[in-house]
Design a protein around this nucleic acid. Sequence first.
DNA 1: CATGAATGAGCCTTCATTCAT
DNA 2: GATGAATGAAGGCTCATTCAT
Lengths: 209, 209, 209, 209
Amino acid sequence: MKPSPGDPAKLKEPPATVRGARTRATLVQAARRVFERDGYVNSRLTDITAEAHCSIGTFYTYFDGKDEIFTAVLLDAQADMMHPGGPRLEGDADPAEIIRASNRAYLQAYQRNARLMALMEQVAGIDENFAALRLERAKAFTDRNARWIEKLQDRGLAASDLDPHLAASALSSMVSRMAYNTWVLGDERPVDDITEIVTQIWINALRLE
Amino acid sequence: MKPSPGDPAKLKEPPATVRGARTRATLVQAARRVFERDGYVNSRLTDITAEAHCSIGTFYTYFDGKDEIFTAVLLDAQADMMHPGGPRLEGDADPAEIIRASNRAYLQAYQRNARLMALMEQVAGIDENFAALRLERAKAFTDRNARWIEKLQDRGLAASDLDPHLAASALSSMVSRMAYNTWVLGDERPVDDITEIVTQIWINALRLE
Amino acid sequence: MKPSPGDPAKLKEPPATVRGARTRATLVQAARRVFERDGYVNSRLTDITAEAHCSIGTFYTYFDGKDEIFTAVLLDAQADMMHPGGPRLEGDADPAEIIRASNRAYLQAYQRNARLMALMEQVAGIDENFAALRLERAKAFTDRNARWIEKLQDRGLAASDLDPHLAASALSSMVSRMAYNTWVLGDERPVDDITEIVTQIWINALRLE
Amino acid sequence: MKPSPGDPAKLKEPPATVRGARTRATLVQAARRVFERDGYVNSRLTDITAEAHCSIGTFYTYFDGKDEIFTAVLLDAQADMMHPGGPRLEGDADPAEIIRASNRAYLQAYQRNARLMALMEQVAGIDENFAALRLERAKAFTDRNARWIEKLQDRGLAASDLDPHLAASALSSMVSRMAYNTWVLGDERPVDDITEIVTQIWINALRLE
DNA sequence: CATGAATGAGCCTTCATTCAT
DNA sequence: GATGAATGAAGGCTCATTCAT
């Protein structure tokens, strides 16, 4: 059985030498550039090796194929993609402000990594293993938001008739889809406008004071 | 220059004979089945002709390639995909009920055509011409909703501090993305739950009443 | 699971047109020439298509790979390889003469098809499916000889203390191995000398008379 | 011109240090295991170095390629392969018993080294230099038997109408081919049965008293 | 109109071999 | 002596596209 992409366990063992590690890193960076430029489907291994100024043989020293290196790109990009992660209740900050701040942080991160996000969506649409990976990550993100909403409800600050999980899921979907429309599909709109409208809807939806 | 897919104008002229029309229709139906089954990227022309029980030569009598027939599939499917189109203000019906009804209609239509919708997303992620087409359609849909929101605001039934266009865009994004998560990515949830939460958020967001 | 070579059932369906059948036949003949010239291991598909004056694409129209066409070569060559099949008791012919005649027939057939026989041995040494095929055919041949020996024993014409099956197996092995040494490994010796010695040993071994 | 494999003269000069000799020996043993496990054709140099727990660079310190190390394996294995070498007339022992004993010794040795024998046959079928080597060794073996038969004929103990060389060749072929069928091709039969039948045929063929 | 054989560019993948460290 | 990263020629296979029948 083919191992599922996205699983770090299946990567080839890391290079033994410093030089090897450098070459591998060069390949991953080159692959990210190529994937972002040409898309996953339209890129060839030779494009990646040309970008990395190495031979195709070298590629196979470190990766077993295109999905292997794509997984590596994803892993490598994780720290970068790590946006604030949604509203966090810090001290007694105004919930509305928390929402605004985290939406802004998310949208800015999305904008910075727009090509990568487009890539993830594309691959999720093609390879079901990556689709599962994508869904799993979205869930983790939504869960955090759901727990935060629940706390607000407990403290009487948010409408209690909303299912926290469904609400978090719907509102998170809204934000990510707006980001996708704007920076992937190219429906150009100022980041501030997007931030304001989604924040407003979050606030209204939860009926914050 | 390669003609843009999705543009009906560039399709080959329609078959002159009845038999030709039938063969062409058979091909389009076969293509839809194959695309929905295997995805756009993973399907080959020979899969389509095999499904249509005709030769590859016949395919080229009617279409110039894979994106040509995909355009034809999309055109052919439009009537089918045509959901009610969002809230419509009919007479003096309760706005909340209109929202609920049109969300339900949309979600049910999405569920019925889930494989096709997945396909459209996939192709939009691969071919920028289809991405443009996809965006354009979403816009038409959003515009209708925006006008409807505007009318509610004019009549004092909805919060007036929301930009009707941005609000319509955000709320429509939310609904379509929830549908995508549920029936394409496989995050199984009852259609009624989805309908309720998105309806609730629409209502709250607009501060109906 | 990979289908076993030598199994006619797994071949691609025969070409629908006369032209196709001709091309396929050309390929099989070309493949036989190439295999006999370069051996199975050292021949490449492009050698075969060059010899057949067609493209590599055409090859894949009719065969799935090298072992596929090798199976076809074997099938095609069967009639040719079909030697008399060992001693046949016809009427009241002298058993010694029957042995001599069938050994001569076998050795001459081997000599004519020496390159093909070498090929079969080579492939049997590499691919265990072909090894099984080879063993099976040898068995069929040996079985016939065993039955014939048994009849001689029943009629009191051959030594009765020999196990007919083992004797047939050993004596057949001797003949085929001598042929192999002579025409495959190149231990040049006149066919008549080989015929005489193996016939003599058959006769002595069975203690005819 | 490529030097002929099998020729000990062309091997790289032996390692100068003790450590070098050990490394080389480890490689040869590893190569034998790998060749016997995967066959000559299907084994790669990296398999051998992995088995020997050394690097590919080290391999090239001692050998020039696959056939080089195969030659070394053969040389290394000679002592091991050395079976009694066929009938030997010792004192006034009963010739029939000598035949039986040496056939048994040969067959047992073959059984013990079956994988190696299979390997030799395989390589002889692929590389003509090894084919020549193989034939040469068989000849040396056959020659000994021929001389022994000649002595029996001189002493009036064996049929004098048989050409001793051809007879030795045919009978030796029979024994080795039976061994091949049994332990290489997998036509399972008890070693005792094989010993008995080939011995019986030797005896009958030579018309020993 | 329908057919399907023929094509070959293009891509993936393997692995023997070299060489700087 | 030992290492293993780097190389790229070589070969396998796919599939969109053409065209003679």
